[in-house]
């Protein structure tokens, strides 16, 4: 049994018995960790004085058994560092943050560290205090796909390999792993149509930073495209997708085109 100390963000919280919870934490150096926090809801223990909330940033100490990674770790201490109060004052920002947490939870593996992605998630939660939440979310999701090695190839057609840098209409296919040109599109079953400007906006997102000049149309379409890609990759829509869409004025998620 070893005690591990790390920086962590709370991705999920599930009640377990009357006063305990099972937490899914995204830690900086130990990847996603599932652990039980016994008696945490009582909030009387100094080791986690006020309980642990969703999307909180803190320093966690937990015990884990080497070689038994499938067993829940046990939380021994939590010190809250930041709870991002702006997320509690605005629903679209709150849901954008929860969408990021859900995507991270689905797309990263337990015990698979991604320090750069952790830093990006931390930046996202802090930056959501102003600006267009979808623009910041786009940048984070792009970073997420890059970090886990699932970033779609958008510079050339995945079928004929020709450059699509100047194309105005392009298709994205999750199964093909990237863009499909208009000429090859009829042969691909799973795909979503988009504009070249959207892909160019997306590929310009090299870091999770706030951009006050983000083009609103491209931002929304890029989110729809990323949501489509993540849905196809995960195999089901994220639970936050529709609530976030309705709050940001986007139509309900279209069904993927299949023949």
């Amino acid at each position: 049994m070893s005690i591990v100390r790390d920086e962590a963000i709370v991705l999920r919280r599930l009640d377990y018995s009357e006063s305990s919870q099972v937490l899914a934490l995204f830690t900086r150096d130990h990847g996603q960790q599932r652990m039980i926090a016994k008696g945490i809801k009582r909030g009387t223990k100094t080791r986690a004085a006020t309980g642990i909330d969703l999307l909180e940033l803190g320093v966690v100490m937990f015990s884990s058994r080497p070689g038994k990674e499938d067993v829940l770790a046990a939380l021994t201490e939590w010190r809250q560092e930041e709870n991002f109060p702006h997320l509690r004052r605005d629903l679209p920002r709150c849901y954008a943050a929860q969408y990021a947490a859900e995507a991270t939870s689905h797309l990263t593996e337990v015990h698979d560290p991604h320090p750069a992605l952790f830093d990006a998630l931390k930046s996202l939660l802090a930056l959501l205090d102003a600006g267009d939440p979808l623009a910041i979310l786009d940048a984070y999701l792009w970073t997420l796909l890059t970090e886990i090695g699932l970033r779609p190839e958008l510079g050339r057609c995945m079928n004929c390999t020709r450059s699509i840098a100047d194309d105005t209409v392009i298709y994205l296919s999750a199964r093909q792993g990237g863009a499909i040109c208009r000429d090859c599109e009829p042969a691909v079953i799973e795909k979503r149509r988009t504009r070249g400007d959207v892909l160019r906006w997306l590929t310009s997102q090299t870091d999770v930073v706030r951009r006050d000049d983000a083009p609103p149309r491209e931002v929304k379409e890029a989110f729809e495209l990323l949501d489509y890609y993540i849905t196809e990759t995960v195999g089901k829509p994220l639970r936050l997708a529709d609530p976030l869409r309705s709050l940001t004025g986007l139509p309900r998620r279209p069904q993927p085109r299949r023949h």
Binding site: G51, D53, L54, L87, R88, R89, D90, L91, C94, Y95
Partner: peptide
């Protein structure tokens, strides 16, 4: 005063 409770409060306000 949790994230879910605050979201619910914001929804009620809206």
């Amino acid at each position: 005063p949790t994230l879910e409770g605050e979201s619910t409060a914001l929804h009620i306000k809206s």
